[in-house]
């Protein structure tokens, strides 16, 4: 067990070191933060709760989905995953280390966004819990794409619509009753966005069934984890 934790830690540190010099991924971390700063500076009428919700969705979706998908695809493409597989690290330890790195760094970026948005939600622990569930779900989806796609180009092509739907549909469906609103009812990001808006006194959301929203987030988390396990068991961590 201790050896396994050490190996997960080794993968975690490796991903962290790689992140430092990977400008493409670093921009993904900076972009949502920069947009929150711009919104706060130039769109003074925009409710801070909206900025917070948008910023968190932006970064959770962008890094949560793109990060693991591109990372796994790049390792396959450059044949570095083969070296990890040939090391004492087990495939489960490899994806756990990678997932943890994206979870921790994205959570920290989420904290920065929360600070910059200028609003402190009521029951902040509910936002943290909801955010953790959504982020983990996004990371699981990203890993599924990363496992199933052969290279970065294909991973990017597959993951872009997934990310766009997760980010934009909850925003576009606000106050609407159309196909987008119908689809967004199946998206965990919509429920998390609503939770953030409700807890930051967003004028248009005065009532919210928090239990059902958290239930949906939990179900999304379990379903995406289940699919990841199935894909992982079926495909393993293919490195060719």
């Amino acid at each position: 067990m201790k050896e396994s934790i050490n190996r997960i830690g080794a993968i975690f540190l490796k991903e962290l070191q790689d992140l430092k010099s990977n400008m493409g991924v670093l921009i993904m971390y900076i972009l949502p933060i920069a947009i929150v700063i711009l919104y706060r500076s130039f769109l003074e009428d925009m409710p801070p709760g909206f900025i917070l919700g948008f910023g968190l969705l932006f970064i959770f979706g962008l890094i949560g989905v793109y990060g693991p998908a591109i990372n796994l695809a790049e390792e396959k493409e450059k044949k570095t995953l083969e070296v990890l597989i040939l090391s004492p690290a087990k495939p489960l330890e490899i994806i756990t280390g990678k997932g943890l790195m994206f979870f921790v760094t994205t959570s920290l970026s989420g904290l920065v966004i929360s600070f910059l948005s200028g609003v402190t939600p009521m029951n902040i622990w509910l936002v943290i819990l909801g955010g953790a569930l959504v982020l983990a779900t996004c990371i699981f989806l990203g890993m599924i794409v990363g496992i199933l796609t052969p290279n970065q180009t294909v991973a990017g092509t597959v993951v872009t619509p997934v990310y766009m739907v997760l980010l934009l549909f909850p925003l576009l469906s606000m106050g609407q009753e159309n196909i987008i609103a119908t689809i967004s009812r199946a998206l965990p990001t919509r429920y998390f966005f609503n939770i953030v808006l409700f807890l930051t006194d967003f004028p248009e959301i005065t009532e919210l069934n928090l239990f059902s929203h958290f239930l949906f987030l939990s179900v999304s988390f379990v379903v995406s984890l289940f699919i990841l396990i199935i894909v992982f068991r079926f495909r393993g961590l293919p490195y060719k």
Binding site: E3, N6, A10, L13, V83, S87, P88, A89
Partner: peptide, 9 residues
């Protein structure tokens, strides 16, 4: 090398 040093203990 550090990655594989850690992985191999």
């Amino acid at each position: 090398l550090q990655i594989f040093r850690r992985l191999n203990g």
